[in-house]
Amino acid sequence: NQASVVANQLIPINTALTLVMMRSEVVTPVGIPAEDIPRLVGMQVNRAVPLGTTLMPDMVKGYA
């Protein structure tokens, strides 16, 4: 099963992502693939992302 990117903490709206904010986990539904974590660093979320939430492509500005 493919691992997805999951929020390791509450990520406030418009926050630029850092490695410490994300972890990989096998979840359903599948979100952004864990191998894209390096690409996500520095990108901003367009909404608040609660701890444990799977990051979906539409949550990250410029990802989709």
Rank of each mutant, 00 (worst) to 15 (best):
N1G: 10
N1Y: 05
N1Q: 15
A3I: 14
A3N: 08
S4N: 02
V6R: 06
V6S: 04
V6C: 02
A7Y: 01
N8K: 10
N8C: 02
Q9A: 05
Q9C: 02
Q9G: 09
L10E: 11
L10C: 02
L10H: 06
I11D: 00
I11P: 00
P12V: 13
P12M: 08
I13A: 07
I13S: 11
I13N: 08
T15R: 06
A16K: 08
A16V: 07
L17C: 02
L17Q: 00
L17H: 00
T18N: 11
T18F: 12
T18Y: 03
M22K: 00
M22V: 15
R23H: 12
R23Q: 09
R23G: 10
R23C: 02
S24T: 07
E25P: 02
E25D: 13
E25H: 10
V26S: 11
V26P: 13
V26H: 11
V27F: 03
V27W: 03
V27A: 05
V27H: 05
T28W: 08
V30T: 10
G31Y: 03
I32C: 01
I32D: 00
P33A: 15
P33I: 10
A34K: 14
A34V: 07
E35S: 15
D36F: 04
I37V: 05
I37S: 14
P38T: 08
R39K: 06
L40P: 00
V41K: 06
V41F: 07
V41G: 09
G42Q: 06
G42H: 04
M43K: 14
M43I: 10
V45A: 03
N46S: 15
N46H: 11
V49G: 01
P50M: 10
P50K: 10
L51F: 13
L51Q: 13
L51P: 08
T53L: 09
T53P: 00
T53V: 10
T54V: 11
L55R: 00
M56F: 04
P57T: 08
P57L: 08
D58Q: 06
M59V: 06
M59P: 00
M59G: 07
V60C: 01
V60I: 12
V60G: 00
K61I: 06
G62P: 05
G62S: 05
G62W: 04
G62R: 05
Y63Q: 06
Y63F: 15
Y63I: 15
Y63D: 07
Y63T: 09
